[in-house]
Design a protein around this nucleic acid. Sequence first.
DNA 1: GTGATAATTAGAATAATTCTTGATCTTGAT
DNA 2: ATCAAGATCAAGAATTATTCTAATTATCAC
Lengths: 142, 142
Amino acid sequence: MVSKTPDHIMSAAIPEEIAGLRMTRQRQEIYRLLIEQRNHPTANEVFMRAKDRLPNISLATVYNCLEALVQHGIIRQVNFERESSRYCPNLREHAHFHDAVSGVIHDIDFKPGGNLADVLELPPGVVIEDVEITLRGKLTVQ
Amino acid sequence: MVSKTPDHIMSAAIPEEIAGLRMTRQRQEIYRLLIEQRNHPTANEVFMRAKDRLPNISLATVYNCLEALVQHGIIRQVNFERESSRYCPNLREHAHFHDAVSGVIHDIDFKPGGNLADVLELPPGVVIEDVEITLRGKLTVQ
DNA sequence: GTGATAATTAGAATAATTCTTGATCTTGAT
DNA sequence: ATCAAGATCAAGAATTATTCTAATTATCAC
């Protein structure tokens, strides 16, 4: 199997460009890290993990990279209350369930055919560009 | 009509205690101000308005009062992205629509009988304690 | 009124994020 | 390969919303 990935990068193949964004080493590592551990880390958590592979990376660069990835629609920025922003590579439209006990954040998909307009009294003329749904509660069973 | 409201307070009658919270002068003014102008102000906007009637009030007090009102379920704290928190006295369960053009935030009621579980793929065992829905978009007509 | 408790105030402290500036890396033309 | 232009990165300063601290003031129960 022939690959264009340079020898010194043995990670999962991340293309050199995504959605028009040049995937530099730093952006690649951050993106891969988000894909591998999908637990909605904060910028600082990303920073700490990224240092394993990029010891010289700075927090500013992590913020820069995350913002570039968000701006190009490659990952999503997720905010709960006024806590630190978290980042997630799940691009499907989805909600978030925040388990108050464990602190874990779960992605919740929409039901096929599910439509918010069935649930909300939307005034006429609104064109919705973005939806953000956050549920907070407990996971009783399991 | 007999009222227990002291003479020096000619504002709309706000009781001296709500939900177990002693309604001090500052808390009263802040609560009344939120009810009168329901445009989801930030703490700083509340601060500026409050100074009309309470020239010596401090921003710290505004934060203290808002938190006390929120803690006692008298008002709600609303967060959009990582912007400053906003405050709203609407206690009905509702969503928010943020008009990207005007910047105005509209309250959106749930349809009677509307249930989020009809729209979301909720895993079994989740007990939802709080829901936060934010829509962003444009108001075309009207 | 007196003492205990709670609320208010002003300013300092905190924390997440953004900004600034200079260094470094890429890319494309030569 | 070399150079210039532009993009990206890094380090630390700056910003901003919010919280904390300590001192003062108001309120409540007696």
